[in-house]
């Protein structure tokens, strides 16, 4: 089973994430957990989340980038779900070895993530906290999927990105079937 953790507070106002999610929703064996739909009051059901993670062969995190990081509820999900003794620390090997695909969208153009750009650093430099969260839990970090300029890319570009995203997930779906 592929578990896609989706975190967007206003999914119907989303452009990038909605296109990406729409492209993969029908992939067989994929289970989507939309955190903001499940836990609008931020009261995360930890056992339910951990059970879903335990069943997953591939874990996908899909969210828009907010303030160089994950949206608040996704961060809260890290805080309460990835607990010591379960995700890390002594006996904490529930996620060990599971591949993790991080997919995120940004509003800025790729060029803004450069030393002379608005955000000063290449986007790769902003991966670290999320990447280390996965690695700390022993997960296998896959090459992230990033869609820049989610508000401004053309429909064709958006569709192409969505297809590329689907291809990456579908490849894993086949792997996990085998």
């Amino acid at each position: 089973m592929i578990l896609l953790i989706h975190a967007h507070p206003y999914p119907s106002h989303s452009r990038g994430c909605r296109a990406l999610l729409g492209a993969v929703r029908e992939v067989p064996g994929l289970e989507v957990r939309s955190l903001y739909d499940l836990y609008p009051t931020f009261d995360i059901d930890v056992p339910a989340e951990q059970a879903a993670l335990a069943r997953a062969a591939l874990i996908v995190w899909l969210h828009p980038t907010y303030w160089y990081s994950v949206p608040g509820l996704m961060k809260h999900w890290f805080d309460v779900v990835l607990t010591r003794g379960w995700a890390y620390g002594k006996g904490g090997d529930a996620l060990a070895g599971k591949p993790c695909l991080w997919a995120t969208t940004t509003g800025g153009q790729p060029a803004t993530y450069a030393p002379d750009g608005l955000h000063r650093l290449p986007f790769d430099d902003y991966h670290a906290p999320v990447e280390m969260t996965a690695r700390f839990c022993g997960m296998q970090w896959l090459a992230p999927f990033v869609l820049h300029g989610a508000h401004s890319v053309s429909e064709t570009e958006l569709a192409a990105a969505a297809q590329a995203f689907r291809a990456r997930i579908a490849a894993h779906a086949k792997d996990s079937d085998a």
């Binding site: 995360i44 930890v46 056992p47 951990q50 059970a51 890290f78 805080d79 309460v80 779900v81 990835l82 607990t83 010591r84 003794g85 379960w86 995700a87 890390y88 620390g89 906290p129 280390m132 969260t133 700390f136 839990c137």
Partner: peptide, 13 residues
């Protein structure tokens, strides 16, 4: 804070 995932505990299965 970011890495200390276990700071806020929750019941386990």
């Amino acid at each position: 804070e970011a890495a200390a995932g276990g700071e806020v505990p929750a019941e386990r299965q």
